[in-house]
């Protein structure tokens, strides 16, 4: 955790300074004694001492008190990082695909991809994805009138 906290502290102090620098450039509003810059500057200023404290106490916290530090050594670090980023990447692909392909195809693919990546067997994942996609579409699209794009494939109801 020593290095992680050093990097975290540096990142946070950098962010605090960047935030102050960016806020100073915000325009002043005529007729308002305090403009849009004040609050982000206050936050940025408050962030810096927190970052310094984190830097100073880096390594001081005993290992077992760290939260979420229970990674199994099942994957190599590179592989683990790759797998970690998969859910956000799937969501990004979903956003790109939903307009041309429609919700049913995009949603089915999201469930299929995630299920298989998490070790689900094809034979179970396919029916699950099909049922869930149709169910979600019926609840949100049909009952609650959320405008889910139809794309290539639309439900009959």
């Amino acid at each position: 955790m020593l290095n992680a906290d050093r990097i975290g502290g540096l990142l946070l102090s950098g962010l605090g300074i960047a935030c102050i620098a960016a806020s100073i450039q915000l325009p002043r509003i005529p007729g308002q004694p305090v403009g849009p810059a004040v609050f982000p500057i206050v936050v940025g200023v408050a962030l810096c001492p927190c970052a310094v404290l984190i830097l100073l106490s880096a390594g001081a916290v005993p290992e077992e008190e760290m939260i979420g530090d229970d990674l199994p050594a099942q994957y190599s670090p590179a592989m683990a990082a790759l797998r970690l980023l998969l859910p956000p990447v799937i969501l990004v692909l979903y956003v790109l695909a939903i307009e041309p392909l429609g919700f049913l195809i995009a949603g089915f693919s999201v469930i299929m991809a995630t299920a298989v990546l998490l070790g689900g067997r094809m034979i179970y994942a396919v029916p699950l994805a099909a049922v869930m996609t149709v169910a979600i579409h019926s609840v949100f699209g049909t009952l609650l009138r959320v405008p889910l794009p139809d794309g290539l494939l639309a439900l009959p109801w």
Binding site: L91, V110, T114, L118, G120, L128, M132, L148
Partner: peptide, 27 residues
């Protein structure tokens, strides 16, 4: 777990879209 988490992920995508009607929320 694979069945729960995959469904949760799609619910997230649809749920946040329903809040703002904007795909930017999913991103």
């Amino acid at each position: 777990r694979w069945a729960i988490m995959s469904t949760v992920l799609l619910c997230c995508a649809v749920g946040v879209y329903a809040v703002t009607n904007s795909m930017a929320s999913v991103l």
